[in-house]
């Protein structure tokens, strides 16, 4: 069964929230600041089983030493959060294939 971020966040506590109930731009800035490697994707691209919501170019960050990914997570009433969670190399490679190369 493939990974699903929504289910993971409900059933695991192995993740960290770096910002919550924030604006998208603030969250994008936090991802750029915290990650040591970035790719930029389009709104609606699928990462970890969910379509990512936001304003392009959407940064997805990696901390390769910790083996984690930073991504924006948006809910209609709660704004955008930055979630950091473990990721395996196979998923990292899937995300790399989405890179638009439009980083700012």
């Amino acid at each position: 069964m493939s990974f699903c971020l929504d289910t993971y966040l409900q059933q695991s506590d192995n993740y960290e929230i770096h910002a919550s109930k924030a604006g998208f731009k603030d969250c994008a800035m936090i991802i750029r600041f915290k990650a040591d490697d970035l790719v930029y994707i389009k709104p609606g691209d699928e990462v970890l089983g969910v379509r990512v919501i936001g304003i392009p170019p959407i940064p997805i960050g990696f901390d390769h030493e910790k083996g984690t990914v930073f991504l924006p997570y948006t809910k209609p009433c709660h704004g955008t959060s930055v979630v950091e969670l473990p990721i395996d190399e196979e998923e990292v490679e899937k995300i790399r294939k989405l890179d638009t190369g439009k980083g700012k």
Binding site: F24, R51, I53, I55, P76, H78, G79, T80
Partner: peptide
């Protein structure tokens, strides 16, 4: 802000 993100997506 979230509604703008959803609309754009």
């Amino acid at each position: 802000d979230a509604a703008a993100s959803f609309f754009v997506t």
